[in-house]
């Protein structure tokens, strides 16, 4: 049985003010695989993640998510595809500030079109180790707790592709290892394909499949 591709990126190019950021970039992730997208600052990691997530339309090339094209689509179609297929985790932008952790997950599940009941939400929060902080507002969480809650928030919509942008950069070694392990575990448990974009070399020990991005955005597998 051949592997089912969840993400296929072909000939991707993007420029900011004529400055090339991504150049003829190609990438393929199969179902259930975990990849590290490693590169220094300015190598185009965030631009690639935004293009994969449909947050920006690249200048050239194509992106296919679980068989559906993300490029060449209207903004509304890209929004819908992102909502249905992708879970995103950022370094510091983790949760909606006015809502409790549980309410963040409730809202995320409703917006994703996969409404989860409170039992499922609490189970997911327990799974990432912040069940006891379900009623807390984000500002009351530690960095590690907030990142764990953000992982739960990204997973509650059962995404096919989980993308984390610099999830461990602000964390110490111990917390970085825990968060990365948690990402791998929860992605496995939820059947999601995982792509972690980072410049954090510490993660290479945990995730052997590495795609290296060099400035001007070409990949070295």
């Amino acid at each position: 049985m051949s592997a089912h591709p969840i993400l296929v990126v072909q000939e991707l190019e993007h420029r900011y003010d004529k400055r090339p950021v991504l150049c003829k970039l190609a990438l393929e992730l199969n179902e259930g695989e975990h990849h590290l997208l490693l590169g220094p600052s300015g190598s185009g990691k965030t631009t690639l993640i935004h293009a994969i997530s449909g947050l920006l339309e690249p200048d050239q090339g194509s992106i296919i998510i679980d068989g559906q094209p993300m490029t060449g689509q209207s903004a509304a179609t890209r929004d819908r595809l992102r909502r249905d297929k992708i879970g995103l985790i950022f370094q510091s932008l983790r949760l909606v500030s006015a809502l409790t952790v549980r309410d963040n997950l409730r809202l995320a599940s409703r917006l994703s079109g996969h409404p989860a009941n409170d039992d499922n939400i609490d189970a997911l929060l327990d799974q990432v180790g912040v069940g006891h902080r379900a009623s807390a507002k984000p500002r009351l969480l530690s960095q590690g707790e907030a990142q764990r809650a953000a992982i739960a928030r990204a997973l509650v919509g059962k995404p096919r592709l989980l993308i984390a942008d610099e999830p461990t950069s602000a964390l110490d070694d111990d917390n970085a290892r825990r968060v990365a392990s948690l990402l791998l575990e929860t992605a496995d448990r939820n059947g999601s394909t995982l792509l972690i974009a980072t410049h954090d070399e510490r993660l290479k020990a945990l995730i052997p499949r590495t795609v290296s991005l060099v400035p001007a955005g070409t990949t070295v597998q």
Binding site: S53, L55, A76, D79, R82, R83, L88, F90, L93, R94, L95, V96, L107, A108, L111, S112, G113, R153, G157
Partner: peptide, 8 residues
């Protein structure tokens, strides 16, 4: 973040 989560 709301937009990322799927809000229009």
């Amino acid at each position: 973040l709301l937009r990322v989560m799927g809000a229009s």
